[in-house]
Amino acid sequence: MDAEASTASARDQSATEIICLTLAWDQIPESISLEGGSDQILREPVIAILVRTSVGWVLLDTGTDARRFRGDNPERDLYAPAGLPEFPTEGDPLLDALAAHGLTPADIAFAAVSHLHFDHSGGLRHLAAAGVEVCVQRAELAFALAEAGREDAYLREDYDSASIRWRVLDGDAVIAPGVDAVSTPGHTPGHMSYRVRAANGDTWLFAMDAIDLQAGIDLDRLVGTWAREQDKPAVRTSHDRLIALARAEDARLVAGHCPVTWPPRELATRSAC
């Protein structure tokens, strides 16, 4: 293979564009996002990532269904005890974020959801309507359908639908060229993070809720919540795995709900924040 062909092949297996989306801001006590944290309320971003690959656009996570927190919904405070989330527009967070980049759900080739808490699953209905295949871990979907309830921040109406085209994963997997699922259970039984390899040689590790805050990385402190008590050891294992991967691959590790470091400065110029 000559140098030109080799470069083209590498580009085909890499992401050519990464766009940060901020779909909401939640009011969250620090103790939720950092074990041993304070009661201070943080304004935390609800994030998603758009990645352009050789097979098309890939959407990583889908944000919150804003309809729950608008109008006179009698249940809205149940899901936001520290204060209602803020949204960047008056419309649908995911649809408006996509539209800001000239896209609709029909333009998405593949999608993934790191886990099925309601601040990550709220846009699944749009992907279902467009027939987009959505990657999810088998353990996450099984837990969400069989065990989890509203008290665990799982809202079945977001994800329990025959119209969602699930692609069920078992551990690490390729989502699309340049985009990998990294199994990081603990926060939830089937949580996954994402690795994105960019065409310029950069590697990005999006921790999602395996590590919420930059302080968790800097101070080696775990995320503050997990769905099942027996999963707490996995929180440490997954935290350590991401730190080790970032070191081994010289990758930028991005915390999933950090108001200080989201969006990463290097990607902010294409952000919808």
Rank of each mutant, 00 (worst) to 15 (best):
A255Y: 10
L116M: 04
V260G: 08
I211H: 10
A139K: 11
P105Q: 00
Q137F: 02
Y159I: 08
E86N: 13
V260Y: 09
V134I: 05
L242C: 04
A128V: 01
D220P: 02
V254Q: 12
I175H: 10
R150H: 08
T225G: 04
P259L: 12
V113W: 01
R252L: 08
S238W: 10
S121N: 09
R241G: 10
L169D: 00
A227Q: 07
C273I: 13
Q230C: 11
D2C: 07
A142S: 15
F69C: 08
Q40L: 10
D212L: 13
E266L: 00
A268Q: 14
D172F: 08
S33D: 15
A146S: 14
A80N: 13
G201S: 12
A215E: 14
A112W: 00
D26V: 10
R165P: 02
G91Q: 01
A244Q: 10
H115W: 02
T184F: 11
V58N: 03
V51T: 08
L78E: 15
V51R: 05
A139P: 00
C258H: 10
W25M: 01
L21M: 13
P74Y: 10
R165K: 08
P93R: 00
G149L: 05
G216M: 06
P264I: 02
T53F: 08
H126T: 03
P259H: 09
L253H: 11
Y194H: 06
S193C: 09
V179W: 06
P93H: 01
G171K: 06
G149F: 07
D158E: 14
S31D: 14
I28P: 10
D158Q: 13
L98T: 02
M208L: 04
V134G: 07
A48T: 05
S161T: 03
V235L: 04
A128N: 03
L23F: 03
V260T: 14
A111V: 08
A82E: 14
D160F: 08
I19F: 07
R52W: 00
D39T: 14
L145M: 11
S6A: 06
A198H: 15
V134F: 09
R221M: 15
D65N: 15
H239P: 03
E229W: 05
T203I: 14
L23D: 03
A227W: 00
S6W: 04
D202C: 07
H239W: 13
F69I: 12
V132Q: 04
W166N: 06
G256K: 10
V136R: 02
G216P: 12
H115R: 01
G37M: 12
L155D: 07
Y159Q: 09
R156A: 14
A148L: 06
T64H: 02
V182N: 11
P29W: 14
E35K: 12
A15F: 11
R252W: 07
